[in-house]
Nucleic acid binder design. Structure first.
Length: 273
DNA sequence: AACAAGACCTGTAAGC
DNA sequence: TGCTTACAGGTCTTGT
């Protein structure tokens, strides 16, 4: 369940468990590839290294060490948990991080996730980060002037626009739908048709929905050991996502679900214009 | 350059 | 019950 708030929650959960600093004895791979081939020298490189910090960029989780930054993406179905003593490996457990006191396990049925690294602390040089837009919670970088300028001339649906990681990172299918609902904007609207006022509202609501979700995720941090943040969740607060044919909480009209860019897109046809 | 569609995978639920 | 199909939180690649 990894959009920005979920990855942030996982990050906080891991830090909660292992502390800011920890010691990585070794990385153990149960297979050599996930979405991409795992770099052949990754295991050698991250043997017996201090982890000085664990951070997040976009939907990527990063382990900082003197040997470089280990960078992992959860794809669609990636989860982290602590392996209990004597616990057997489960289906789709692909990567084990052997720390001093415990073992962290990365599980990912669909294998859309990834493990790569960046030699330098300068992460802009990392291929996958090259074209990433600003962090949505960074008010300096992600502001009206920026988004307005980017949005002019764009013919694509506004929902696709805010899900485009080159425009702004971290917003996926769920939170795009929720933010557009809060801003009363129909997801099919052409991006260039969005007014300045609407765009301002959208920025506020993207932040709001992500921050609320992070807060709600925060309550499930204790679940990290079990499942990797499955419960105690923000899903109880969805206004439109997954609510097809149910009543809109605001106007009682039936929530619709249409396909935009091949993704299910929930919205209220009365509230969102 | 901009955009749409296809591709990568497995698990689950719904439909017949 | 069993088989088939559609779909799922992402993003990279290919084609128009």
């Amino acid at each position: 369940m990894p959009e920005l708030p979920e990855v942030e929650t996982v990050k906080r959960g891991i830090i909660e468990l292992v502390g800011e600093k920890s010691y990585l004895k070794k990385v153990e791979l149960m297979r050599q590839d996930l979405r991409f081939p795992i770099p052949p020298d990754l295991v050698r490189r991250f043997k017996n290294v201090e982890i000085s910090n664990i951070t997040r960029r976009a939907k990527y989780l990063m382990f900082h060490t003197p040997k470089g930054v280990l960078i992992s993406h959860l794809g669609m179905t990636g989860t982290w948990r602590e392996k209990e003593k004597g616990e057997k490996l489960r289906t789709h457990d692909h990567v084990l991080m052997h720390l001093k006191e415990r073992i962290l396990v990365y599980n990912d049925p669909r294998r859309f996730g990834s493990f790569e690294y960046c030699e330098s602390e300068n992460l802009d040089s990392f291929v996958r980060f090259k074209h990433l837009g600003p962090e949505p919670l960074d008010e300096e970088e992600f502001n009206l002037e920026y988004l307005w300028q980017k949005s002019r001339k764009k013919e694509i649906p506004i929902k696709n626009f805010i899900m485009d990681q080159k425009v702004v990172v971290g917003v996926g299918n769920i939170y795009a739908a929720e933010a557009l609902f809060l801003s009363a904007i129909k997801p099919t609207r052409k991006t260039k048709s969005i007014t300045k006022k609407e765009m301002e509202s959208l920025i506020v609501n993207i932040r709001m929905v992500l921050e609320s979700a992070i807060e709600a995720g925060g309550s499930s941090i204790s679940d990290f050991k079990q499942a990797g943040g499955e419960s105690g969740y923000f899903q109880n607060h969805f206004n439109v996502y997954g609510r097809e044919a149910e009543d809109c909480f605001v106007c009682s009209a039936k929530i619709k679900n249409i396909s935009i860019g091949g993704r299910s897109s929930f919205y209220c046809s009365r509230c969102q214009l």
